[in-house]
């Protein structure tokens, strides 16, 4: 193994799951056995995945650390690197750098209600924390998951949703935007912030959210309206990143580098930052 800051290690795609027409999840296995065995991360951290020739891009680690021997990323086809990732097949090689960034608070929330609010592919960074919470379910009070997408076909992690729906220790609410429902749809119809207000979880809960920017802005407003303390509203941010370590200079919001000081921020912290996201 080298010790060069920006040189990734090789990894192999072990499995590919098509989540939606334009989103797929990849299961990735680190090639170097020593690195793989010692590899660990915290929920909320991210990695950089390379498709050699196309480039490198940031993805949240979308599987929980307790699933050993592989990591999963979930990728929407939106640009050069993500398109190249969508062209990959099982067995293909990618580059892996990470883990980077801070993580979601966990132990400090023992004994509290947890509310997960996800929109579209934005549930990907919450997924490790959701599974970790469920693995230590007895340490928390009520667990709410509110998850929505534009349409039924845009919901990701359908297998996870089935598993979560079958448990009686999770209050799962799924929703699709108006017009996004199909005949078989049994969930809610409405925008995620509206459904959050309808579910109206107790405001002494910790609310963890991620989704499209516009959704998050309204989730913050709804959380404020419901009476949540901004210290208990936690999210993870996305900015353009190249280095992952706080030196390439582009992911900052004010003096905070999303890659190094984030990506996880509390609403109370974000309210002190300039409005640049």
């Amino acid at each position: 193994m080298h010790n060069e800051t920006f040189v990734p290690t090789l990894a192999t795609i072990e499995d590919i799951r098509q989540e939606t027409p334009d989103i797929r999840s990849l299961r990735i296995v680190l090639d170097d056995e020593g690195f793989r065995q010692n590899f660990t991360f915290k929920h909320g951290q991210f990695c950089l995945i390379s498709v050699f020739g196309a480039g490198e891009a940031v993805f949240c680690l979308a599987s929980p650390p307790l699933w050993k021997d592989f990591v999963e990323i979930t990728v929407k086809e939106v640009g050069k690197v993500t398109s190249a990732i969508h062209d990959l097949e099982v067995g293909d090689k990618v580059g892996f750098r990470g883990p980077y960034g801070n993580s979601f608070p966990f132990e400090e929330n023992f004994g509290r209600n947890i509310v997960f609010v996800g929109g579209g592919i934005g549930i990907a960074p919450l997924r490790p924390l959701i599974w970790q919470t469920l693995a230590e379910r007895h340490k928390f009070k009520d667990v709410y998951i509110i998850y929505g997408a534009r349409s039924v076909s845009d919901l990701v992690y359908k297998e996870d949703l089935r598993k979560w729906a079958s448990r009686d220790d999770i209050k799962l609410t799924t929703t699709v935007d108006p017009g996004g429902e199909d005949e078989a749809w049994q969930g809610e119809v409405g925008l995620v912030p509206q459904i959050l207000e309808k579910v109206s979880p107790p405001t002494d809960s910790v609310l963890v959210t991620c989704g499209p920017l516009v959704m998050m802005k309204f989730v913050f407003l709804s959380a404020r309206k419901l009476g949540f303390d901004p210290n208990d509203v936690i999210t993870t941010l996305e900015m353009k990143m190249k280095c992952g370590v706080g030196t390439c200079g582009r992911c900052n919001i004010g003096n905070k580098y999303v890659c190094r000081d984030g990506p996880v921020f509390r609403l109370a912290e974000m309210e002190k930052l300039p409005n640049e996201f």
Binding site: G53, G55, C248, G249
Partner: peptide, 28 residues
Amino acid sequence: CFDIADEAGISRGVRLRIWDCCSFSSFT
């Protein structure tokens, strides 16, 4: 500030670290 970008042929190539500037709209 810098950018990281690949330059490649069909199977071989290089990854470069290149100066980049916050004045450019592509930066973010």
